[in-house]
Write a protein that binds this DNA or RNA. Structure first.
Lengths: 103, 103
DNA sequence: CCGAAACTAAAGCATTTGCTTGTCTATTTT
DNA sequence: AAAATAGACAAGCAAATGCTTTAGTTTCGG
């Protein structure tokens, strides 16, 4: 259904460089919260709060085993954002080609 | 160069439903600030503040002629966001196909 | 010229965001 | 068992966000 709320959450999640770095890391392989935190210049707590944002947007899921929480990306959650951007570009191109007389 | 800052600004701009509505409107044709405001349930001032966000992200440009400011989208400004998402998906798929043994 | 239209600028305000620090609980490791 | 590791939970705080209202300025139509 591609509703507003899910786009809000996805774009909002992607708007922060720390969260994008976390997704970039997770696009290589799953990782623990500590793994995600290691290269970042902030507390583990802060990283867990970013993770919460990523999880509530559906971009990342995680699962705890023993004392380690393992996080992985949910690439299909990027589709809504991707589709929205593509739709705008497509509409713009359609309109542009009419303006150029290339019907 | 696709720097962090420009991605921040683009995704941040896209994270608000009002701003996405404005871009959707502008993907059909250029419009004045009042045109953009008409369907929105908020003051003209608020719409202009959203416009400022869109302009500072480069997604929209505008030009004033007489008393009317005409806004248009800059579809190439969506490319950075689009490319970032595609890159993550591509990386994930590369990794997934290795995991599946489909080298 | 006069009033409406289309912005523009600025101040104020409630909420959200992105951290911090401190405390606490499980789970491993030694 | 003791200590270290990995995370969870909460409170607090400064800054950013998304509005509002008020008070302009400039331009256009009659």
């Amino acid at each position: 259904m591609l509703n507003q709320q899910s786009l809000d959450l996805a774009f909002q999640a992607l708007a922060d460089p720390t969260r994008r770095a976390m997704i970039e890391r997770l696009s290589l392989s799953p990782a623990s919260v500590s793994d995600l935190a290691r290269p970042l210049a902030m507390s583990l707590s802060a990283v867990m709060q970013h993770l919460a944002v990523l999880e509530s947007s559906g971009l990342v899921v995680s699962e705890k085993l023993g004392r380690v929480r393992t996080c992985r990306i949910q690439p299909q959650a990027l589709s809504a954002a991707h589709a929205w951007i593509e739709a705008r570009r497509a509409e713009w191109e359609r309109r542009a080609s009419i303006a150029w007389g290339i019907t």
